[in-house]
C-alpha cells in the first residue's frame, strides 16, 4: 500500500537531486533548472498532504491553492531570472559561475 510517507520520501529525493544540482553544476542555466526541481518537490508534498487531510470527505483545497500560487510565482521568477541570465551573458559572454565572481567590473 502506498502511504503518505512514500510520497514524502519521493518528494524529498527530488528535492535532494535539485540541491545536488545547485551544489555541483557550474552552468547558471542548469542551476536554475535544479531550483525549479526543488520548487516542484515542495509542491508534491503539499499535494500529498492536501489529499491526506480530508475536509468533509474532500481533499483540503487550501493546499492545492497554495500549489497554484507557487506555480504562478515560479513562472514569473523563471521569466525574470532568464532575462537576468541573458543580460549577464551580454555583459560577460559566459554563464559559468566560476567566471562570475565579482558584483561589478
Amino acid at each position: 500500500m502506498v502511504t503518505l510517507n512514500h510520497y514524502l520520501f519521493v518528494s524529498g529525493l527530488l528535492f535532494t537531486l535539485g540541491l545536488t544540482g545547485v551544489m555541483l553544476r557550474r552552468s547558471l542555466i542548469v542551476i536554475f533548472m535544479s531550483l525549479e526541481m526543488m520548487l516542484s518537490a515542495a509542491n508534491l508534498s503539499l499535494v500529498a498532504f492536501s489529499r491526506f487531510n480530508l475536509v468533509n470527505g474532500l481533499p483540503n483545497y487550501n493546499g492545492q491553492a497554495l500549489v497554484f500560487f507557487i506555480i504562478t510565482v515560479a513562472a514569473a521568477e523563471v521569466a525574470v531570472g532568464l532575462a537576468i541570465i541573458v543580460a549577464l551573458f551580454r555583459a560577460r559572454q559566459t554563464t559559468s559561475v566560476d567566471d562570475i565572481t565579482s558584483m561589478k567590473y
Binding site: N5, L8, F9, G12, L19, T20, F52, L58
Partner: peptide, 27 residues
C-alpha cells in the same frame, strides 16, 4: 550534503507514524 539529507529524511519518516496510514477514502 545530499547523502546526509537523504539519511535524515529516512530517519524522520521512519519515526513519523501518522504517515504510515494509507490515504483515507473520499466521501
Amino acid at each position: 550534503l545530499a547523502v546526509v539529507f537523504v539519511v535524515q529524511l529516512a530517519s524522520v519518516l521512519s519515526s513519523f507514524k501518522a504517515g504510515e496510514l494509507g490515504f483515507p477514502l473520499q466521501q
